[in-house]
Design a binder for these strands. Structure first.
Lengths: 174, 174
DNA sequence: CCTACCGATCGGTAGG
DNA sequence: CCTACCGATCGGTAGG
């Protein structure tokens, strides 16, 4: 529901109604509405980090490693659309302390992703582009997938991963 | 304010306070909160369409045309960050009729953008990729620029446009 | 897990 | 452009 209608526009009564209980009863399970948002963000962040950590220290060329990181990232977005959308777009409604916490987590993820790009630039496998700008650009494209991806559509997870890693590495020009 | 804190989390009293009048007085200028959102979306949509229309019928190779479209799109996002953010991300809070209207407008923009890609594929200038998926991917990356772009940062509009058109056309691999 | 309720705030209107 | 206010709804609590 946070994904569909946005955190601010989702009321505790909306949530309670979905579960089939009264709004007040929700407080036997959670402390606050924000705790719910925080937990979703943290759990989904973990998914992304686990996947990236499995990839980043593998002994393989940077291009293959980056392709793998892209494919793993996409796999999480497409298999956990709700969580990904909340982690990527609703986190900003967290209050100060938690907001800062999530901001730091997101930055760390981008930096670890960026290190793969940097490795490839340093070793001469990649062009001499700006690794930070490149990483932000790629993650922007990947993070918006949740908005248009249809689980039952004509594209599956693998095809999507292949499309992105191919296009981002090889470019559009023939 | 709609960009910074989100449409749903921005109250008429927030808006009135920013302008220095009472909330009730706002209704001498607008009919409703949603009308405000709708106007921002429509005005910004116009900016994007005007720019794309100036590019799409130019007589030049598809790669140059696409690069130009990307650069013009970025120019609008970076010069009208607030409007772009609202048009791209807050539009979904519109009510049914206006929601559908904006959805159609956004689709039309993507389709016109996509036609440039299709031309390049047909003429053999571009690789044989999926033009729709490619267009969505590119626009996703471009539409997220507002989230991290700093007008006073070390990157200006031109450099950003060049980065994206270069990377998307040529790819990362050396 | 419920009923009953709190003070605060919401978008918006009446009337001047 | 204001004061004064509407009914509805908000996140959350008390007490069982």
């Amino acid at each position: 529901m946070f994904r569909e209608r946005g955190y601010a526009a989702t009321s505790m009564r909306d949530l309670a109604n979905e579960v089939g209980i009264e709004a007040a009863s929700l407080y036997n399970h959670i402390k606050s509405k924000e705790e719910l948002l925080l937990n979703i963000c943290l759990e989904t962040a973990d998914e992304f980090f686990i996947a990236l950590n499995q990839v980043k220290d593998l002994d393989m060329p940077s291009d293959k490693k980056l392709a793998l990181a892209i494919e793993r990232h996409i796999a999480i977005v497409t298999s956990n659309i709700d969580g990904a959308a909340v982690f990527l777009h609703e986190w900003r409604f967290l209050q100060e302390a938690n907001f800062a916490r999530l901001k730091a987590i997101r930055k760390r993820y981008r930096q670890e992703f960026q290190r793969i790009v940097q490795e490839g630039v340093d070793s001469g496998v990649f062009k001499n582009i700006n690794p930070k700008l490149y990483s932000i650009s790629v993650l922007s494209a990947l993070n918006w997938i949740y908005d248009w991806y249809k689980p039952d559509g004509d594209l599956n997870q693998q095809q999507l991963g292949q499309h992105f890693s191919y296009i981002l590495l090889e470019g559009l020009r023939k």
